[in-house]
């Protein structure tokens, strides 16, 4: 794996149980494409959370921002501002005076939903107009693999990533083994911390390519 700024991908997304499968899919795809995923959970919890996140952003040329929690599901439920806040900070870093951060590239993604298309963003975050927004389908997470894979494909990698269908098949083969083996430790898939999941996926894909 290429270490460092050019190969690091900061992932800004929800961490609730409902989203965890999407995050597992993103992490698997990023590692499969030979990039290095960074999420805020992977750093020490003692430090100020926002400081830790900014540190991760500064060390990542690429970032993936999932804004799918930008509407509340029911009346009175607060929408989540963490993801738009972190996207704003990341865009701010890119536009700062620091030369080495000017190469930063961000991908903004969201799930399909009622009234959720590019016009939704013209209303909710109109300053994002002109930026690519990739919409994926929650019921067909292969569309998320395709979005992430295609984003990474155009980032001047030495070696082109596999087709998204192959990454998706590999994910399903991995996941079946993963779930079955977790049962031995009496663990369910959502109880594993993401940094441990990253280590296992890394080990699995390294062994697969040997």
């Amino acid at each position: 794996m290429r270490e460092g700024f050019n190969s690091n991908v900061f992932i800004n997304c929800p961490f609730d149980d409902e989203y965890k499968e999407n995050l597992r899919v993103i992490i698997f795809t990023v590692i499969h494409c030979k990039f290095n995923p960074l999420i805020s959970e992977t750093k020490d919890s003692g430090a100020n959370r926002l400081d830790s996140i900014i540190k991760l952003m500064k060390s990542s040329r690429l970032s993936i921002h999932d804004l799918s929690r930008n509407v509340s599901k029911k009346a009175g439920e607060a929408m989540r501002f963490n993801m738009p806040l972190e996207l704003g900070i990341d865009l701010g870093l890119k536009n700062s005076e620091k030369i080495d951060l000017k190469d930063k590239v961000s991908m903004v993604i969201d799930v399909t939903g009622k009234d959720k298309n590019q016009y939704f963003y013209q209303k909710s975050i109109s300053d994002l107009a002109g930026n690519d927004l990739i919409i994926y389908t929650q019921s067909e997470l292969i569309s998320l693999v395709e979005a992430v894979r295609n984003f990474l494909y155009i980032q001047k990698v030495d070696e082109a990533p596999d087709q998204h269908t192959n990454i998706w098949d590999d994910y399903n083969m991995f996941k079946a083994e993963y779930i079955e083996n977790l049962e031995i430790d009496k663990l369910t898939i959502n109880r594993v911390i993401q940094s441990e999941y990253i280590d296992i996926v890394q080990g699995y894909l390294d062994n697969k390519s040997k």
């Binding site: 083994e177 083996n181 031995i184 296992i200 080990g203 699995y204």
Partner: peptide, 17 residues
């Protein structure tokens, strides 16, 4: 969140072959 045993991790990684 609980940790996965080293034995289980090794089995998952080995299944990649």
């Amino acid at each position: 969140s609980l940790h996965i045993s080293e034995e289980t991790k090794a089995k998952i990684v080995a299944s990649a072959k």
